[in-house]
Design a binder for these strands. Structure first.
Length: 625
DNA sequence: AACGTGAACAACCGCATGACT
DNA sequence: CAGTCATGCGGTTGTTCACGT
């Protein structure tokens, strides 16, 4: 030993941590307390700052802890104070059951004992670790009794499972892990615990947090929930099924964020009785509308029974999304280790899922259906602060039907789904009483926007044109400008297509919509199959139609952001590198500013104007698989 | 430097489930 | 079979930090 003076202020002549882990921890805890004194002396922020910086390096340097590096590592990993603890703490706080722990949250246990809440201290961690070492996991309620730790069993279990358990991986997810999570989520839905079993060292909480963050990020970027390649991993024979499944999945996640309570509403008019769905007969006595939108009202087909018991309209979901009979495989959880999609043979990791094939029960783990269990309180779209109804087909009149009966392609659906938060209501003249308030609010917003700067100008700027152009932009020109750069396969620019099918809306909510029959692609739902089989042309056409009918385009408020992003999606989505889709933030290249004030919009228009040139031409888009 | 905002993380809460009595 | 308890799970909320303005 070169110098052991540093130990003396702590009252230690030497350290022997070569014993058991428990002993080492105790010693280290002791060191910690004593280092508090040093911290005070040297005016450190936190005793552990001093302790960690000095002790470990030097202890190791002197070989004191050489024999117990594992212990030290363990200490470092598990007993380091949380970030929140890195504030000057009272000495009493080091000691358990200190009389004064400041404003720490407390709760009263069943036996009347005061239990700590909030962040765990390193001391508490140490106690818990020791306890588990001695008694093993489980019997968490006994921790409090046996160890004196003022934490409820639940809290102990959580702390152990999420932080103290050995072999937990810390730090950011690797690319492989991220990919795994995405695929697992596509299969399992929000079954975080199950997903965690496939990611050694990761906890369900970590995965959940990661996913929620990811959702928000991608939503804000206007990206689909699942990367494109995930959607099209299906084998050829299952392609259609998987597309459908994928649409449903994407649809589900996004729309969940847009759920909006509208009691007693649904899609009655969209059921298969209209003959739109040739496979309807595959489902005994169940309409697509029921499956999609009425699950909660149809106990016999309780796909949505668990969706927070909230009545909601799965807005924007059209029966025509479904191009063929859903395969049973959609509703089965596939082999966990086999991360491919589209298996038609059922794998049964959980036998109780077998019945799913009969459509008689819930889908415990699958997101294969549109409704998911995403947070209702957290809008998935960062672009919209309010949880707006997307497509409030709350009425059963023709107008609502008209609106719902697009024949969107996969891409269009995807885009539409992604942008649905701003799609408040398409039926300008058939606003349900429930939605009128929101629509009024949006109207007001639109008026404010148009009155202040003119949202048409904003829109124009979003398409990357000059300020001079902006002056001339209005009405349809807006849309033309928006789409002018896109060459359609048959010599139609998007703008021309828009012209052809342009209803007299021009940004005014008060205008009606063209009759359903006038909407290209809406004549016959068999078009969907064509969309799916020959996605290029049809898709682009319909997607532009779709976007055009997006009510936010009519409202103009959020359209600027969403619409331009949608355009980007159309152009970028297909040829974007997989890595982009796999989570590399699209925003980084194409910075998206969340919708907010009008000034935000203006700011964003400039940003997007710059990036617009990067957007590849539609004609260069590779074909869908 | 101050402030605002979003991401990441940690923890809590309520409910579901299964074991046990 | 019903009630209780322990545990697990998923949703939600709160806090901190980093970054941009």
């Amino acid at each position: 030993m070169q110098d052991s003076n540093f130990l003396q202020p702590m009252g230690l002549n030497s350290l022997d941590v070569s014993g058991s882990m428990g002993q080492a921890i105790e010693i280290l805890q002791s060191c910690f307390k004593r280092s508090k004194l040093l911290a005070d002396r040297f005016n450190c922020l936190h005793p552990l700052d001093f302790f960690m910086e000095l002790q470990f390096s030097r202890l190791k340097q002197f070989g004191v802890v050489e024999a117990s590096c594992e212990t030290v590592r363990f200490w470092k990993m598990n007993l380091l104070p949380t970030k929140r603890e890195k504030e000057p703490i009272a000495e009493d706080n080091i000691v358990l059951h200190s009389t004064d722990e400041g404003s720490r949250a407390k709760s009263i246990g069943k036996d009347g004992q005061v239990l700590n809440k909030g962040p765990w201290t390193s001391a508490e961690d140490a106690i818990l670790i020791e306890y588990v070492k001695k008694h093993g996991e489980g019997n968490w309620n006994a921790v409090q009794k046996n160890s004196g730790l003022s934490r409820c069993g639940k809290s102990c279990r959580l702390r152990w499972a999420n932080h103290l358990k050995p072999n937990l991986k810390k730090g950011a997810f690797t690319m492989e892990e991220e990919e795994m999570i995405i695929q697992l989520h596509a299969k399992m839905g929000n079954k975080w615990a199950k997903m965690a079993t496939f990611l050694p060292g990761r906890t369900d909480n970590e995965i959940k947090n990661y996913w929620n963050t990811r959702i928000k990020r991608r939503q804000r970027a206007g990206l689909p929930l699942y990367p494109h390649n995930i959607c099209f991993q299906a084998s050829d024979e299952n392609q259609q099924t998987q597309i459908v499944s994928c649409v449903a999945q994407q649809h589900s996640g996004i729309l969940q964020g847009n759920r909006f309570d509208i009691p007693g509403t649904g899609f009655e008019n969209l059921n298969t009785g209209h003959g739109d769905l040739s496979f309807a007969s595959s489902f005994p006595d169940i309409s697509v509308s029921n499956m999609i939108c009425h699950g909660y009202e149809s106990p016999g087909y309780g796909y949505m029974d668990k969706v927070n018991h909230v009545k909601q309209v799965d807005a924007g979901c059209d029966a025509t999304f479904y191009s063929g009979p859903p395969s049973v495989s959609q509703f089965l959880v596939e082999p966990p280790a086999q991360l491919t999609f589209g298996l038609d043979y059922p794998y049964d990791p959980a036998p109780n899922f077998k019945d799913l094939a009969t459509f008689g029960g819930e889908i415990p783990d699958s997101h294969a259906f549109p409704i998911d269990k995403f947070s209702a309180s957290r809008p998935l779209s960062g672009a919209v602060k309010l949880e707006l109804p997307s497509l409030q087909c709350t009425e059963t009149d023709d107008s609502s039907l008209r609106v719902c009966r697009f024949t969107p392609t996969f891409e269009a659906v995807n885009t539409y789904i992604e942008s649905s938060p701003t799609t408040v209501s398409l039926q300008s003249e058939s606003i349900s009483p429930q939605s009128r308030g929101l629509l009024d609010a949006l109207l007001h917003e639109a008026q404010v926007l148009s009155g202040s700067k003119g949202y048409s100008s904003l829109k124009c700027s979003s398409s990357g044109i000059t300020d001079n152009d902006m002056v001339e932009c209005s009405g349809l020109n807006t849309f033309e400008t928006e789409w002018e750069g896109y060459n359609y396969p048959l010599g139609h620019s998007a703008a021309s297509v828009l012209k052809e099918c342009t209803p007299p809306v021009y940004g005014s909510l008060s205008h009606g919509f063209p009759p359903f029959k006038d909407i290209p692609g809406s004549q016959n739902t068999t078009v969907i199959a064509e969309h799916l089989s020959t996605p290029n042309m049809e898709e682009k056409n319909t997607s532009s139609h779709l976007d055009f009918y997006r009510p936010d385009a009519l409202l103009g408020s959020d359209w600027l952001e969403e619409g331009s992003q949608v355009a980007k999606d159309h152009s970028v989505f297909n040829d974007a590198a997989t890595t982009t889709l796999m989570g590399h933030d699209f925003c980084k290249e194409h910075k998206i500013v969340p919708a907010g004030t009008s000034s935000d919009l203006v700011r964003e228009t400039k940003l997007q104007s710059h990036s617009w040139g990067k957007v590849p031409n539609v004609s260069r888009m590779p074909e869908l698989p």
